[in-house]
């Protein structure tokens, strides 16, 4: 996965940090090390770009509407439950 100039162990260590980099969760030093690595490692650069796109696609997944029949069933069930008893503290 790496060109000759790369230390494979370092490459794997950086590959392991890609998500934290995307999430802005790396300390300054590690962030700079990773950016330097990415500049010289095509594999990690492509992985970073496709990983970012994967995350964006997950964030864009649309919600389905709740089926009307289930919505009504849930409402009825909760109303029934509320008429039987109110919220109560858990007995320990």
């Amino acid at each position: 996965m790496v060109s000759d100039e790369h230390d494979p162990k370092h490459c794997v260590a950086m590959f392991e940090k890609l998500s934290e980099y995307i999430d802005g969760e790396l300390d300054e030093l590690t962030r700079r090390q990773l950016e330097t690595h990415i500049d010289g490692c095509v594999s990690c650069k492509y992985c970073l770009a496709t990983l970012k796109k994967t995350i964006k696609l997950c964030k864009q997944l649309a919600d389905d509407p709740v089926p009307e029949a289930f919505h009504l069933k849930l409402k009825e069930m909760l109303l029934q439950n509320m008429s039987d008893s109110g919220p109560r503290a858990q007995k320990r």
Partner: peptide, 25 residues
């Protein structure tokens, strides 16, 4: 999940990484 390709054989950046979301979704 480590990339299997050798860096020297990698081509262009994958097209789906470059396309805007609205063109992919």
């Amino acid at each position: 999940f480590l990339p299997k390709e050798d860096a020297s054989t990698l081509g262009e950046m994958p097209y789906w990484a470059q396309l805007p979301l609205e063109k992919l979704l």
